[in-house]
Write a protein that binds this DNA or RNA. Sequence first.
DNA 1: CGACTAACAGATTTCAATATCTGTCATCCG
DNA 2: CGGATGACAGATATTGAAATCTGTTAGTCG
Lengths: 196, 196
Amino acid sequence: MAETILTAERILEAAEEVLRRYGPAKATVVDVARALGVSHGSVYRHFPSKAALRDAVTERWLARVSAPLAAIAAEDGPAPARLRRWLDALIGAKHAKVLDDPEMFATYMTLAADAREVVAGHVAALTADLARMVADGVAQGVFAAADPQATGRALLDATARFHNPAHAAEWSDPGIAAAFEGVWTLVMRGLETRKG
Amino acid sequence: MAETILTAERILEAAEEVLRRYGPAKATVVDVARALGVSHGSVYRHFPSKAALRDAVTERWLARVSAPLAAIAAEDGPAPARLRRWLDALIGAKHAKVLDDPEMFATYMTLAADAREVVAGHVAALTADLARMVADGVAQGVFAAADPQATGRALLDATARFHNPAHAAEWSDPGIAAAFEGVWTLVMRGLETRKG
DNA sequence: CGACTAACAGATTTCAATATCTGTCATCCG
DNA sequence: CGGATGACAGATATTGAAATCTGTTAGTCG
């Protein structure tokens, strides 16, 4: 299997492993090439720069987060429960990642800070999921929202403390779950259609 | 004036100036003492450690932010407008600080990261302001909230993107004001009493 | 011919020596 | 005697020379 042809995919695999081992500060293109048994020049045939390689690693990682969420957003059934499931999945996935591999999480935070464009795409995908569920809720007559896209974004922003990595240090706070319930209650009340 | 007796207050003043000049990484207790024309041993008569001195500087800074907010929270009049004024003041103050002295803002972010307890007190003060306004709104019959304290905290959390320094990099985004309006609309709708 | 290598220039990082800092304390001064 | 000093030990930071890395390209190999 070491005889396989060198592909972008194999390079990404090796880059992820090298990042896991050495961390973002010490992982070099030379290390990645060494792990693959090729010269570092070969890596530059597939990625124009170290930054591009890191961006691609980041994109893969974010895709693994957003794929299952898109599946939830696309489900049938009542929008409110689906929205809750989606948020629980997003928040649960993030919290689990910090818990069971804090160093790798810190590594990805560093990568993401340098990959603003890739992150913007990820945020757009999440917003689209939320907008879809809001629109579904409006169609079902359970949500009131003039602009589902804007409301989707508002939901993402309002819950930032619970899923945005910038707040990761707060996730070990014992009151974090209660705090999320507080925000959930508030925004659900803001989303619901009025009775009477 | 250089003949004034050495007080904690004068040390804090000098420490702030030294931090402004050298930044958090290079500012030393020796620098502070030098600025005051005393030996660094004298500084340790007033503060038990460099960390305690930094904490005190941080506390002063946070107090300058929260004092005007407490005044707004304590005003009379309709709670919704007051709440909006309070949030505008908080967000406006933070954004102004980054805009007109980004380096000092970064310095304070570094200090705050090491002064978790002091920051917790600041957050508690802000939450108390919000809880008070929510409770006032309930008394005025314009807000519905079972637990004003929890709802106050939910408001702070839901608006974190717009005032928490961890998000400072996003504040130059041209869409940030619109994003705040989106969250404001959503949470106000969640706060209002239901008609009919 | 096309994937890969290897050598290179300039930029960045590492490492160990040197200098500075933190926190303490015996001592000094008014 | 209360407030300040300055010298000290151990920890931390700075510095500059040497090593390594990034990105390019001329050239090798199948």
